[in-house]
Design a binder for these strands. Structure first.
Length: 178
DNA sequence: CTTAGGATCGCCT
DNA sequence: GGCGATCCTAAGC
């Protein structure tokens, strides 16, 4: 597969479901092996092992001891590359997501990696699983989409890299693009 | 609308 | 032992 920034860009507009629940990907971030902000920057460890394995799998980690976050593993020279799925526009299983999240605001159902994880019931149990098999489902986007990019969010290193991607004009982004 | 603090725990130095 | 690829709530303008 190609580099993670290209994958991150091409994922915008793709429909992601987990057990039939989810929506259209509207925000992603790319991370790679040579990237100081990436979990893989310092080499393989127990946590990031999946990121050094085959492409097309889920890498899931626990953020701040509370939030399960979903990444797609990419293959790049040296491996250790992936894309963080940061936000969805909810389209399927909305009632289920509202119940899991405990709030009804559609704009905040899946707008952020932690919220998305909660809405889709992402847990460590899905770590390393193939994205082309149950419970995951990916459907190609229809037609063209306008993608914007900018600095990634919530990191302190490599903030100059424009490796955050979003669907232009979407109301479901975790934060606006400047 | 912006900012500040707390929650909470696995990972790595 | 310190610190996050975060989110929520409350308080301040």
């Amino acid at each position: 597969m190609r580099d993670s920034a290209e994958v991150a860009r091409r994922l915008i507009g793709v429909t992601l479901l987990v057990d039939g629940v989810g929506g259209v990907i509207v925000e992603t971030e790319a991370y790679d092996r040579e990237d100081p902000a990436s979990h893989t920057f310092s080499g393989p460890t127990a946590r990031n092992a999946v990121m050094f394995g085959p492409a097309g799998r889920a890498y899931i980690y626990l953020s701040y001891g509370i939030h399960w976050c979903l990444n797609f593993v990419c293959r790049e020279s040296g491996h250790g590359a992936g894309v963080l799925i940061r936000a969805l526009e909810p389209t399927a299983g909305i009632a289920t997501m509202i119940e899991r999240r405990g709030q009804t605001d559609l704009r905040r159902l899946c707008s952020g990696p932690g919220r998305l994880g909660q809405a889709l019931a992402i847990t460590h149990a899905l770590n390393g699983m193939r994205l082309d098999k149950r419970p995951f489902s990916l459907k190609p986007r229809r037609g063209r989409v306008r993608v914007i990019s900018g600095p990634r969010i919530g990191i302190s290193k490599a903030i100059d890299q424009p490796w955050r991607f979003g669907l232009a004009g979407s109301q479901f982004l975790s934060l606006p693009f400047r």
